[in-house]
Amino acid sequence: MITVIEQAVQARLVATAPKVEIVPVTLCYDRSDPFAVRMAFPAPATLEGIEVSWTFARELLEAGLDRPTGHGDVRVRPYGAGRTVVEFHAPEGVAIVLMASADLYHFLERAASIVPPGTEHLFLDMDHSLAELMRDSC
């Protein structure tokens, strides 16, 4: 049984106009963290020169395909026909990424095939999570 999916997509990293870089982005969904998705950017696309990953709610990505969503570090919204904007807000600044909505829909369909939306709570391992939290407190 598949428990982790990864999908490579092409994204446009919007920098200062008119420069727009195309970067490979890896989307990841892991059944062991059923509420979250991870988006990883390769080292050459980051200010630090190391791979950077952002983890945020799968529900945020789903909702953002249809309407502007998010108030914190990650915001998602539709952008014209067939594109979606994901904004990452950090103390260093804001990164704006454009992706084909079809790629995101495909990724979310694959994620739903291993954990259907609304059933995430059935895949949580509370004992393991609690043990992890308590491990460093002793």
Rank of each mutant, 00 (worst) to 15 (best):
M1K: 13
T3F: 04
V4F: 10
Q7D: 03
A8M: 07
A11Y: 13
A11R: 06
A11G: 15
A17H: 13
A17F: 07
P18M: 12
E21S: 12
V23T: 15
V23A: 14
P24M: 11
P24K: 14
V25T: 07
D30N: 13
R31H: 02
A36L: 13
M39R: 05
M39S: 02
A40R: 09
A40V: 15
P42R: 03
A45C: 04
T46N: 09
T46K: 07
I50A: 13
R58T: 01
L60H: 06
L61W: 00
L61E: 00
L61T: 01
A63W: 00
G64T: 04
G64F: 02
D66F: 11
G72R: 12
R77G: 05
P78W: 09
Y79F: 14
A81Y: 05
V85K: 05
V85Y: 02
H89T: 09
A90M: 12
E92T: 14
E92R: 14
E92V: 08
G93A: 00
G93Y: 08
A95H: 08
A95N: 08
A95R: 14
I96G: 01
I96Q: 10
V97C: 01
L98G: 02
L98C: 01
L98A: 00
S101T: 15
S101N: 10
Y105G: 03
L108Q: 01
A111M: 04
A112G: 09
A112L: 01
S113Y: 10
V115D: 09
P116G: 01
P116S: 03
P117Y: 03
G118R: 12
T119M: 07
E120F: 01
E120D: 15
H121G: 09
M126F: 11
D127F: 00
D127S: 12
H128Y: 05
H128V: 14
L130V: 12
E132H: 06
L133S: 02
L133E: 03
M134F: 06
D136T: 12
D136S: 06
